[in-house]
Amino acid sequence: MRLAIVTDAWRPQINGVVRTLERITAELTATGDTVEVIGPDRFRNFAMPGYGEIRLALLPRARLARMLDEIRPDALHVATEGPLGLAARAIAIRRGWRFTTSFHTRFAEYVSARTRIPPRATWALLRRFHNAGAGTLAATPSLREELVRRGFRRILPWTRGVDLELFRPGARDAWHGLPRPVFLYAGRVAVEKNIAAFLELDLPGSKVVVGDGPQRAALQSRHPAVHFAGWREGEALAHAYRGADVMVFPSRTDTFGLVLLEAMASGTPVAAFPVMGPKDVVGAGGVLDEDLHRACLAALEVPRAQARAEAERFSWPASARAFRESLTLV
């Protein structure tokens, strides 16, 4: 199969959408499919206001149409709702192509957190975008139920995976010198991640933030005792997870949370709110509580082997198979 994936989230961005698409592409290619990922890096692009590391394609429709003509895909997947996603949707509708989409990000809440635009207005636009396709892939039961309630049609299951070889238990010396226990956050440092809810907790030991983003400078100034480590990838990220005692996930708006799986696969239990994402993923691998302080302390008692066992329920080959089975011929 020749598959074209159009996405506004792609390298050099570091986030769950990019990591998911990278792994799915690798898995499908390994089993014989041809996968072409079309991201903003192949177009004239500009920085998203207030979020410089995110690049958006500038007027991509004509060039994208030529690319799709060259690829001649058997299937088209539109992964995001940005300029490239909108252009791909318009091209497909004009040509009478069938295509699938995926719902990764609760943009309605993210937009509302930064502006005064009410979430219902953004949800209406998202519903219109996705309902034009042959199906919308969603990662968790909680998300699929919400999308159905909001009027999205043809919702398809597509879970995620984790690299159990890279993210594994092992030496725990990453944060040598910091007082124990070490409570770790990993991910984008942005307002929608609700990181302040973690940093403001009165916890024993040390707090560590792995990642970067537009809120880093303000949070670092406000919390000088917190260790901000910046982005880490690959083995360095796995080492960071292993060295922590608890992974704290304060977000209330994520649709899945790959970092949850990565931490648990490394043997590190999770503390989080009982919301979409954590309640679908964590299971016995951590503690969910509306009192995040209580969850953090209780997670210290979760056996690390138990956290690892929860992560082992997920695999990238299974995720890739589910993704491929959802595709529809153009």
Results as ranks from 00 to 15, higher is better:
Arg2Tyr: 08
Ala4Asn: 07
Thr7Trp: 01
Asn15Pro: 02
Val17Ser: 02
Leu21Tyr: 12
Thr25Gln: 15
Ala30Met: 04
Ala30Ile: 05
Thr31Val: 14
Arg42Pro: 01
Tyr51Pro: 00
Leu56His: 02
Leu59Asp: 12
Arg66Gln: 13
Arg72His: 13
Pro73Asp: 06
Leu76Gln: 08
Leu76Asp: 10
Ala79Gln: 04
Thr80Ser: 01
Ile91Met: 01
Gly96Lys: 07
Trp97Thr: 10
Ser102Cys: 09
His104Gln: 12
Phe107Asn: 10
Tyr110Phe: 11
Val111Pro: 00
Ala124Phe: 07
Arg127Glu: 11
Arg128Phe: 15
Arg128Ala: 15
His130Leu: 11
Ala139Lys: 03
Arg149Met: 03
Arg154Tyr: 04
Leu156Trp: 14
Arg168Asp: 08
Arg168Lys: 11
Pro169Arg: 01
Asp202Asn: 09
Ser206Arg: 01
Ala217Asn: 04
Pro224Met: 03
Phe228Thr: 15
Gly243Pro: 01
Asp245Ser: 10
Val246Leu: 06
Asp254Ala: 02
Ala263Cys: 09
Gly267Gln: 05
Thr268Arg: 08
Pro269Met: 04
Ala271Phe: 10
Ala271Gln: 11
Ala271Asn: 12
Ala272Glu: 11
Val281Cys: 06
Gly286Tyr: 06
Glu290Gln: 12
His293Thr: 09
Ala299Cys: 12
Ala307Gly: 01
Glu310Pro: 00
Phe314Gly: 04
Phe314Asn: 03
Ser315Asn: 12
Val330Ile: 14
